[in-house]
């Protein structure tokens, strides 16, 4: 079992996301994370999906994705050199005079930005691979995480190669 990162190029049409998500749920494939957005070609979108499974199962996931008419290209970049990033917003309890300084110090260590300062809370913005966000969240839990918002992971191949294949 391994977590695979799939970069999927799709038509930018209504219903595409539900076709992709529906295929995963009805065939019993579990999505760990999914992020969708526009891409370098205006009429297409790129979906980054992380999915758990052994090689046979991942092969089946890729083939079933490819069968969807609105899916243009499926790239499994797991075994290729790539960068992975996710963004998270973490609203953490940080009362002045008590934990605020410690939270700010942790933020600094993780190179997280403080993007909102409230009376009793701070919002941290952190960017990195999902494991880094997991680690930061775990550390901040002792102060009280009031809200955690994650974008889902996105990924790109290193160097001049692209997942569009040209």
């Amino acid at each position: 079992m391994k977590v695979h990162t799939l970069s999927v190029l799709v038509e930018n049409k209504s219903g595409v996301l539900s076709r992709v998500a529906g295929m995963f749920s009805r065939r019993g494939f579990n999505i760990e994370s999914l992020a969708v957005g526009t891409c370098e070609v205006p009429e297409m979108s790129r979906i980054t999906i992380t999915v758990h499974g052994d090689d046979t199962r991942i092969e089946q996931v890729k083939k079933q994705l490819n069968k969807l008419i609105d899916v243009i290209k499926v790239s499994d970049i797991t075994y290729h050199e790539h960068v992975r990033r996710e963004l998270a917003l973490i609203k953490v309890v940080a009362n002045p005079g008590s934990s605020r300084a410690e939270v700010m110090q942790i933020a600094d260590t993780f190179r997280a930005q403080i993007i909102d300062v409230g009376a009793k809370t701070l919002i941290l913005q952190v960017v990195g691979p999902p494991e880094k966000i997991d680690a930061l969240e775990k550390l901040l839990r002792q102060y009280g995480v009031k809200e955690l918002v994650r974008t889902g992971m996105i990924a790109a191949l290193r160097g001049s190669k692209t997942t569009a294949g040209d």
Binding site: G15, S18, I69
Partner: peptide, 14 residues
């Protein structure tokens, strides 16, 4: 109906 038939069609259109 496009939502309902998504799992039982090769493709569908609205």
């Amino acid at each position: 109906i496009t939502g309902i038939t998504m799992p039982v069609t090769k493709h569908n259109y609205l």
